[in-house]
Every structure is written in structure tokens, then in C-alpha cells.
Amino acid sequence: MFEARVAQAEILKKILDSVRELVEQGNLDCSGTGISLQAMDSSHVSLVALLLKSEGFERYRCDRSINLGINMQSLGKIVKTAGNHDAITLSSEDKGDVLGLMFESTEQDKVSNYEIKLMDVDAEQLAIPVAEYSVCVRMPSAEFARITRDLSTIGDSVLISCTKDGVQFSTTGDTGSGSIVLRQSSSVDDEKKAVVIEVQEPISLSFATKFLVQFSKSAALNESVTLNLGDGVPLMVEYPMKEMGYVRFYLAPKLSN
């Protein structure tokens, strides 16, 4: 038996919104420690790694580990019908063929029950090694969204160059070029609004703009985002979710021939 209850539907809505455009279907791996999902986009260039820790749920029970193959679009559509403050309980029998969803309003005067058919998802599981990153940039997630959106009007690749002085995002396209530099915040009252740049080694790497734009749509998950870059490893973009876990995106670079 698997059962997981979140106090407020809002967080699940935000999580599903952030992954469902990138990932059509995936396996929710449910175990005693929580729920995880690892899925690549269809071109195998980017990967979503989601972790929802058991302690982040109001109630959590998973007697034996199970894989729930889910169409993320279908799940997203159903969860969207819940009120933001509704409690949501996910459930599945050990050998069941459906994922049950129960929404309960805060007043307990409305209860909705849905079932989604499970599917066989033949997803390749990749082993993600723990990487040593040369650069870690923490910045407001809204700023990251703005920068990727603004540069996407010009070019399909963004070069991210980072030194101790700042991080530069630049692009070139048929119509011209553009670049945006962010400098480390000198003094900030609100830590969430700070730009913090940690540099072991300066680095410059190119990435496909369209994926950065996709990732940056997760801004609702956290006011801050971290970009982790290293030579010979994919970019890792992380949106932490307090006690709940995280959504991480990995993106392979574009290399010059």
C-alpha cells in the first residue's frame, strides 16, 4: 500500500507545472524515504530529477517500493482541478493498476476522487554521479526567467561565462546579439534577492536556449535558483523546495566542433 498526503495542493500543482512540458511520461519511484522521478526529454539532452521526501508529506506510508508509470499531462490536468488549499492524498495498491487521488477541501465539505490508469513506462534510468562544480551561481528565480526569455528572442544558444566578477549570459542570432551581466550583490537585505557567485575556476559553456527557458518556468517553486556549472559535466539547475525536496534539471552543453 502506498499513500501520501500533502496538506495543500498548490505545491503539487507547481511541481507538475514545472516538469510536464519537458516530460511526457515517467515512473514515480515510491519508497519508504519518499517519491522520486527521473526523466529525460525526448531528445535526451535534458533530464528532470524530482525528489519529494517522505517527511515533506503530512502523512506518508509506503509498505514496499513501487514504480508508478504516469502520463504527466494527465496527472497535471487532474491535479489542476484541485483547489490550491485542498489536501491531496495519492494512493495505490501494491499490485494496483491505478493511482488514486483524493482532494479534500479545507472545510471538509467537498471530497473529490479520481483515478489515473498506470502505464508501463520504459524509461532509461541514468546514474547521475556526484559532480564537482567549478561555479555555483545563486540568483532570484524570476531574474533567471527574465534573462532566458529576453535572450531567447535573439539566439538559440546561450553562453554562460562566469568569473569572480560576475556571470554573463550572451547569445548571437541572425538578427544580432545580446548579453546580460549580473554582478554579485554587495549588500542585500533580502537574501532571496541576492546574486551570490562562488567560483573555483572561471568557466564558459553554451546551452540550448529553449531548455533554459523551460527550466526557468519553475520559478514558482522557489524565489531563488542555483546554476551549477563544471567542465565535462552537464549544467545542473536546482529549485529547492524547503523540507519537501527539490526539482533539479540537468542539461548537456553545446560544444564547438
Partner: peptide, 14 residues
């Protein structure tokens, strides 16, 4: 000219 690398070149299969 840039070439898009795939993730498999970095991450092994489990």
C-alpha cells in the same frame, strides 16, 4: 558552429 551533446555521454546507465 555548436554541436549539442547528449546526456548519455556524461551519465552512465543504471
Amino acid at each position: 558552429v555548436c554541436r549539442q551533446i547528449q546526456l548519455k555521454q556524461y551519465f552512465g546507465q543504471e
